[in-house]
Amino acid sequence: MTKFSARRYSFAFLIPGGIIYFIFYLLPTVLSLFFSMTRWTLTDWEYIGFQNYVTFFSETALSIGFRNTFVYAVVTCALKVILGLLLATFLTSNIVLKSYLRSIIFFPTLLSTIAVGIAFSMMMHPSQGIINTSLAAIGITGPDWLGNTKIALLSVALVDVWKGVGIATVIYIAGIMAISKEYYEALKIDGGGSWASFRHLTMPLSRPAMNSVIILAFIGGLRSFDLIWAMTKGGPGYTTDLVASIIYKQYQAGFYGLATAGNVILFILVSVLAFPLYRYLNKNEVQL
Rank of each mutant, 00 (worst) to 15 (best):
P276N: 01
L91M: 07
A157T: 02
T169E: 11
A73F: 02
H125D: 15
Q128D: 13
F107D: 04
L187G: 04
L288A: 14
L153C: 14
P28L: 04
Y21F: 15
G65K: 00
S36D: 07
Y280C: 01
G175T: 08
Y53H: 08
S10D: 09
T92Y: 05
A136H: 13
S103L: 15
P28I: 08
L110G: 15
E185T: 04
Q250T: 10
K3T: 15
D44H: 11
S155L: 07
T202M: 04
A217H: 03
V116M: 08
V270S: 13
D44S: 14
S93Y: 09
A157M: 07
S155A: 09
D241L: 11
A6F: 13
L87N: 02
L216H: 05
L281N: 08
P16M: 06
L110V: 14
S99R: 14
L266D: 06
T60D: 06
M124P: 10
I173K: 02
A196K: 11
F13H: 01
M122W: 11
K80F: 00
L266R: 12
P126M: 11
F120D: 06
M203L: 13
N282Q: 07
L85D: 00
Y172I: 04
S99Q: 13
G164A: 03
V243P: 02
T69N: 00
T29N: 08
K283G: 11
S127R: 13
F66A: 01
A217V: 07
I105H: 00
S134F: 08
L281A: 07
D44T: 14
K283L: 06
R223N: 14
I118P: 10
L216F: 11
A78D: 07
D44G: 09
R279T: 02
H200K: 10
V75G: 10
